[in-house]
């Protein structure tokens, strides 16, 4: 199980790209944090979520 934005999900074994493709996130406006680091977008395909990982996905909103 992987904790994503505070909820445990059955996402272990999926890459970040695979996980995101099953969600409504707009990849162009998100940042993914895992283990205290921001995962570069170019690494979404190569980064596999592991059992016990804690992940946060931030979806940026407009205004500044």
């Amino acid at each position: 199980m992987v904790k994503i934005n505070g909820e445990w999900e059955d996402a272990a074994g999926k890459t970040i790209a695979e996980y995101l493709s099953g969600t409504s996130y707009d990849v162009r406006r998100i940042a993914v944090e895992k283990g205290g680091e921001i995962v570069p977008k170019c690494a979404y395909d190569a980064t596999t979520l592991m059992d016990g990982d804690v992940v946060e996905i931030v979806s940026f909103v407009g205004g500044g």
Binding site: R29, A31, E37, I38, V39, P40, C42
Partner: peptide, 15 residues
Amino acid sequence: DDPQAKAMLVDAAAS
């Protein structure tokens, strides 16, 4: 102000 620009900079920083 643009959310895509925000995400771009965060990604560039990480990369």
